[in-house]
Amino acid sequence: MMEPEAIRALLQAGLSDAEIEVIGDGRHFQARIVSPDFEDLPLLRRHRMVYDILRSHIDSDVLHAISMRTLTPAQAAAEQD
């Protein structure tokens, strides 16, 4: 079982200047991830980056499921307006 904070820390370590919010129940999580690393990348590549960071936890089934929104800083700023 994982805590949201553990997922946040893994993603923070793997992405540049990321703003990350994670909620979940120990096996199923939702994440909102904002990072300049996502600039000019299609959605599938962004999600693959996140899955690659979490791969060992997913493969071992410690982390069962995560849904995510991956945004660039400009996209996140536009949502605030």
Rank of each mutant, 00 (worst) to 15 (best):
P36N: 01
F38Q: 07
A13K: 11
G26A: 06
A18S: 13
G26D: 06
D17L: 13
L43K: 06
G26P: 07
F38E: 12
I33R: 01
D37R: 03
D40E: 14
P42A: 13
Y51V: 11
V50N: 03
P36W: 04
D37Y: 07
D40V: 00
L15N: 04
G26F: 08
M49Q: 13
I23C: 10
V22C: 03
R48W: 03
D40P: 09
V22G: 07
G26Y: 12
V22W: 01
L41G: 02
E19R: 08
P36K: 01
R27D: 15
S35F: 06
L11W: 02
Q30K: 14
E21S: 13
D25F: 01
L43Q: 10
Y51K: 14
V50P: 02
V34C: 08
D40F: 10
F38K: 05
E39L: 15
D40K: 13
G14L: 06
F38H: 00
A31T: 05
I20Q: 06
L11R: 02
I23Y: 07
A31I: 08
Y51S: 08
H28A: 14
E21I: 07
D25E: 01
P42R: 11
V22L: 02
S16V: 06
E21N: 02
A31P: 00
R27M: 12
D25Q: 09
G14V: 13
E39D: 09
G24E: 05
D17S: 12
A18G: 08
E21A: 13
D25H: 03
I23G: 15
A13P: 09
A18Q: 15
V34D: 00
A13F: 12
D37P: 03
D17H: 15
Y51L: 14
E19Q: 15
D17P: 04
R48H: 12
G14C: 10
L41M: 14
H47M: 02
S16D: 14
L44S: 15
V22A: 03
V50F: 07
L41C: 05
Q12C: 06
F38T: 09
S35C: 07
E21L: 08
G14W: 03
M49V: 05
V34K: 02
Q30V: 10
I33Q: 04
I33P: 00
P36V: 06
R45I: 09
R46Q: 06
D17C: 15
D17G: 11
R45Q: 15
D25T: 06
V34G: 03
V34W: 01
H47I: 03
H47P: 07
E39S: 10
R46G: 07
P42K: 13
A18C: 11
I23M: 13
G24R: 04
R32P: 04
R45H: 10
Q30N: 11
A31L: 09
E19G: 08
D25W: 05
L41R: 13
Y51T: 13
P36H: 03
G14R: 14
I23P: 15
S16Q: 03
E21G: 09
R46N: 02
I23Q: 12
V34S: 04
I33N: 08
P36I: 01
D25I: 06
M49H: 06
